[in-house]
Design a protein around this nucleic acid. Structure first.
Length: 230
DNA sequence: AACGCAATAT
DNA sequence: CATATTGCGT
């Protein structure tokens, strides 16, 4: 093992496994915070998370793809419903727009892989800094830990059991909504915290547990010999 | 309460 | 730009 350790495509992934901390600076209040729900850094939707997300949506079915379920299925600590909801929106929007028709990509698209599209490192490896805009500040954020691993599929049925779950409903047909102009500045709300905690208490250098492999079916490769299966 | 969506803020 | 946040209507 000498020096070549390049991680072949997909293998050592630095995705949502062990992020670093990096506290962010936010307007802390001078108030004492205490058990305030900490503010988590901007969630970085890494390709893997996206993958899990898409997976969950796909497996659950569009009808059941509701934030709560998705979130549970992804099993990513620290992920909140809001996170998923927000992304879900985007996801749906994207589908509506150019779903994935081949050629519907604005331009340039690159093909992507077929079996596994992973590989995204959050941080580049070279040092290039192309991409992205000038703003964005240096807000380094990170935060979610991922894990999840095999969900065995079908594992969780949210409401299947005993309760009664309402299923999804339909959408409203109406369209008349939207009416809320006002808003703007003026409020002086206060809210914030400071400290560094991490709600995602699983991404700190103190926990060293589950972590390591997680991915979805992209890892079924194994068994050199023959192994029957489906 | 939870979801969906658009406006809006960072 | 990508996300989060918020407001409103189901």
């Amino acid at each position: 093992m000498t020096g070549s350790m390049g991680c072949p495509p997909m293998s050592c992934y630095s995705g949502p496994a062990d992020y670093s901390q990096m506290v962010q600076q936010q307007q802390d209040d001078a108030d004492d915070n205490q058990a305030r729900a900490l503010k988590r850094p901007r969630l970085v939707w890494t390709p893997a998370l996206h993958a899990l997300f898409e997976e969950a949506v796909g497996k659950l079915g569009l009808d059941k793809a509701v934030p709560k379920t998705i979130m549970q299925m992804m099993n990513v600590e620290g992920l909140t419903r809001e996170n998923v909801a927000s992304h879900l929106q985007k996801y749906r929007l994207s589908l509506k727009k150019g779903g994935e028709p081949d050629g519907a990509k604005p331009a340039g698209a690159s093909s992507a892989a077929a079996t596994a599209a992973e590989g995204g490192d959050a941080t580049n490896s070279g040092g290039e800094k192309t991409q992205q805009q000038q703003q964005q500040d240096e807000e380094a954020t990170a935060g979610a830990s991922a894990a999840a691993a095999e969900s065995g599929d079908g594992g969780s049925g949210s409401c299947g059991g005993g309760g009664g779950c309402s299923s999804s409903d339909g959408q409203e047909g109406g369209s008349s909504r939207r009416a809320r102009p006002g808003k703007s500045a003026a409020g002086a709300d206060a809210a914030a915290d400071g400290a560094a905690g991490d709600t995602g208490a699983a991404l700190q250098p103190a926990k060293q547990r589950e972590e390591q492999q997680q991915q979805q079916e992209a890892q079924e490769q194994q068994a050199p010999a023959a192994m029957d299966a489906e």
